[in-house]
Deep mutational scan, measured.
Amino acid sequence: SELMNSSKLIRMLEEDGWRLVRVTGSAHHFKHPKKPGLVTVPHPKKDLPIGTVKSIQKSAGL
């Protein structure tokens, strides 16, 4: 199965306009000026399962 580095996923979010608002432990929480909701990324993780990545991307509207 495909894995993604959390840094790469965070870069994709930031390029889309998401900004880090809070860190709780290894959970990084992002908000967007125009899009609704809060997106949480486990970080640092070298090997996020593709299912997790897809669900984060979906929440972020990517």
Rank of each mutant, 00 (worst) to 15 (best):
S1I: 12
S1T: 11
S1V: 12
E2Y: 08
M4D: 05
M4W: 15
M4K: 08
N5K: 06
N5I: 13
N5H: 11
S6C: 02
S6H: 03
S6E: 02
S7P: 04
S7T: 14
K8H: 14
K8C: 12
K8I: 14
K8E: 14
L9G: 02
L9T: 02
R11N: 11
M12P: 00
L13H: 00
L13F: 01
E14C: 07
E14M: 11
E14G: 06
E14Q: 10
E14V: 10
E15T: 09
E15N: 11
E15Q: 13
D16T: 04
D16F: 06
D16W: 03
G17T: 01
G17D: 06
W18R: 00
R19A: 10
R19P: 00
L20I: 08
V21Y: 13
V21G: 04
V21I: 11
V21W: 10
R22L: 12
R22P: 01
R22N: 08
R22V: 07
R22F: 13
V23R: 11
V23W: 09
V23A: 14
T24V: 09
S26E: 12
S26A: 10
S26G: 15
A27H: 15
A27M: 12
A27L: 14
H29I: 14
H29C: 08
H29D: 07
H29A: 11
F30N: 00
F30W: 02
F30C: 01
F30M: 06
H32Y: 01
H32I: 00
H32M: 01
P33A: 11
P33S: 08
P33G: 08
P33V: 07
K34H: 13
K35W: 02
K35Q: 03
P36R: 09
P36H: 10
P36K: 11
P36Q: 09
G37D: 05
L38E: 14
L38G: 06
L38W: 11
L38Q: 08
V39T: 04
V39F: 01
V39P: 02
V39N: 01
T40L: 08
V41D: 00
V41C: 05
V41M: 03
V41L: 04
V41A: 02
V41K: 01
P42G: 04
P42T: 05
P42M: 05
P42I: 04
P42F: 04
P42H: 05
H43G: 04
H43I: 02
P44K: 04
P44E: 03
K46E: 15
K46Y: 12
K46F: 13
K46C: 08
D47L: 12
D47H: 14
D47G: 08
D47F: 14
L48V: 06
L48S: 01
P49W: 05
P49N: 08
P49G: 09
G51C: 09
G51F: 08
G51N: 13
T52N: 04
T52R: 06
T52S: 05
K54R: 14
S55F: 11
I56T: 02
I56P: 02
Q57C: 12
Q57F: 15
Q57S: 07
Q57G: 04
K58A: 14
K58Q: 15
K58W: 07
K58N: 14
S59F: 08
S59L: 15
S59K: 15
S59I: 14
A60D: 01
A60C: 02
G61W: 04
L62F: 05
